[in-house]
C-alpha cells in the first residue's frame, strides 16, 4: 500500500517538474516549485527519512518560495517568449535524452530499492546504529551522526551557509538605500499585509506558535526528528512571516541588523568554539566526551551547543538574505 502511494507521489513529482519547466509565468513556476518541495518532503517521509522531510518542508516549501518571490519582485515575473534558438533547443533535448538513457542504463545495475544487503548498508551505517546508544546515549541516530560522528563535516556545512549569507549581503549591500529610507518605508508599508486584517490577525497568532515549534525542534532534536538545521529554517520562516505581515521595517526593528550579523557569525563561532574547547580540555577537535566527567554527558552538552550554533547561524543567514531582497525591493 505504501508502495503504491510512493509510486503515485513520485509520478506527481515528475508531472509538477514538467509543469514548472513548461510554465512561462515565473510566478506560477515558483508556486509550483513550492508544491514540488512539499511532495518531495512526503516522499522523503515515506522513505523513512523523517529528519530530511522536516527540513525539506521548512526550507523548500517555506523559505525558498519566499526568496524566489522576493527575487521575482526585483526581476519581473514574466519569462520572455524567446528561448534559445531551435538548434540549441534540440541540442538541449539531445543532451537531456542521452543523460537520461545513461542513467536508466546505470540504474539497472543498482541494488533494488530497500535491499538490506546493498553495499550502502554494509560499511559505516551499522557501526553508527550499533554505537549511538553506548557512545552518545541519544535515541536519534541522525542527530548523533550529524553532530558528533560527522561533526567536522557539519562544521563545514555551517561555514558554507555562513559564507553564502555573507555573499548575499555583500552583493545586495546591507546599507543600500539608507538615504531613501522615508520613501522606502512608505513603500514597504504598502507592500506589507498591514491593511489586510484577517491574514494579519491569524498570522500574528501563528508566529509565536511557529517559534515555539522551532524551539521544540531545536531542543528535542536528540529524541525525535529535529535539530539545528530544521529549527533554524522554521524560526526563520516565523520571522519572515512576521516581516511579510507587518512590513519589512517592523521585522528589522524586531531583529536589528547588528543582531542578525551577530547571529550569523556567532552561531558558526559557537560551533567552532566548542571544537576548540574540546582540544583545550585534552580531547580531539569536536570530540565532546571530554566536556564533562561522564563521556555521554559531555556528548549531550556538546551536541546541545553545536546544534544551537547551527540553529542560530541558519536563522540569521536566512533572515538576513530575506531582508537583503526585501530592502532592495522597497528601494
Amino acid at each position: 500500500m505504501t508502495l503504491i502511494f510512493g509510486v503515485f507521489l513520485l509520478i506527481l513529482l515528475v508531472i509538477v517538474a514538467l509543469a514548472i519547466v513548461r510554465s512561462e509565468d515565473l510566478f506560477a513556476a515558483v508556486m509550483l516549485s513550492g508544491i514540488f518541495s512539499l511532495l518531495m518532503a512526503v516522499n522523503f517521509f515515506l522513505l523513512d527519512a523523517a529528519d530530511v522531510a522536516l527540513t525539506e518542508a521548512a526550507v523548500g516549501a517555506g523559505v525558498a518560495t519566499v526568496l524566489f518571490l522576493g527575487a521575482l519582485a526585483l526581476t519581473g515575473k514574466e519569462e520572455a517568449r524567446h528561448t534559445v534558438s531551435p538548434g540549441g533547443r534540440w541540442l538541449a533535448l539531445g543532451v537531456s535524452f542521452a543523460t537520461a538513457s545513461l542513467l536508466f542504463y546505470a540504474s539497472l545495475e543498482n541494488p533494488h530499492i530497500g535491499d538490506g544487503s546493498a553495499p550502502v548498508h554494509q560499511h559505516v551505517a551499522p557501526w553508527y546504529l550499533a554505537n549511538t546508544l553506548p557512545l552518545i546515549d541519544i535515541p536519534n541516530v541522525v542527530t548523533a551522526v550529524l553532530g558528533s560522528f560527522r561533526g567536522f563535516d557539519t562544521l563545514g556545512e555551517v561555514f558554507v551557509v555562513f559564507t553564502a549569507g555573507i555573499g548575499v549581503m555583500s552583493i545586495l549591500g546591507v546599507r543600500h538605500s539608507l538615504v531613501e529610507l522615508s520613501g522606502a518605508e512608505l513603500d514597504a508599508r504598502q507592500r506589507s499585509l498591514r491593511h489586510h486584517l484577517i491574514p494579519r490577525i491569524v498570522g500574528r497568532g501563528m508566529v509565536p506558535l511557529i517559534m515555539l515549534f522551532a524551539l521544540y525542534v531545536q531542543f528535542h532534536g536528540e529524541y525525535s526528528p529535529g535539530g539545528g538545521f530544521q529549527a533554524g529554517a522554521i524560526a526563520a520562516a516565523a520571522i519572515i512571516l512576521y516581516s511579510l505581515l507587518e512590513g519589512d521595517d517592523r521585522g528589522r526593528e524586531l531583529l536589528p541588523e547588528w543582531l542578525l550579523r551577530l547571529m550569523v557569525a556567532g552561531g558558526a563561532l559557537l560551533y567552532g568554539g566548542v571544537g576548540l574547547a574540546c582540544v583545550l580540555l585534552g580531547g580531539n577537535f569536536l570530540d565532546y566526551s571530554v566536556l564533562a566527567t561522564v563521556p555521554s554527558a559531555g556528548q549531550h552538552l556538546g551536541l546541545l551547543l553545536i546544534e544551537l550554533g547551527v540553529g542560530i547561524t541558519v536563522t540569521g543567514v536566512l533572515i538576513s538574505v530575506f531582508h537583503a531582497f526585501a530592502r532592495r525591493a522597497s528601494r
Binding site: 526581476t75 551522526v145 553564502a164
Partner: peptide, 27 residues
C-alpha cells in the same frame, strides 16, 4: 541507513543558501 539522511539534511540547507546567492547575483 542514517548516513544519507545526514548528508542530505545538511545539503538541503546549504542548497537554499547557495540558491539565495545565485538569486542575489541575478538581481
Amino acid at each position: 541507513n542514517p548516513l544519507p539522511q545526514v548528508l542530505i539534511l545538511t545539503a538541503i540547507v546549504v542548497g537554499i543558501a547557495t540558491t539565495a546567492l545565485g538569486l542575489a547575483v541575478v538581481v
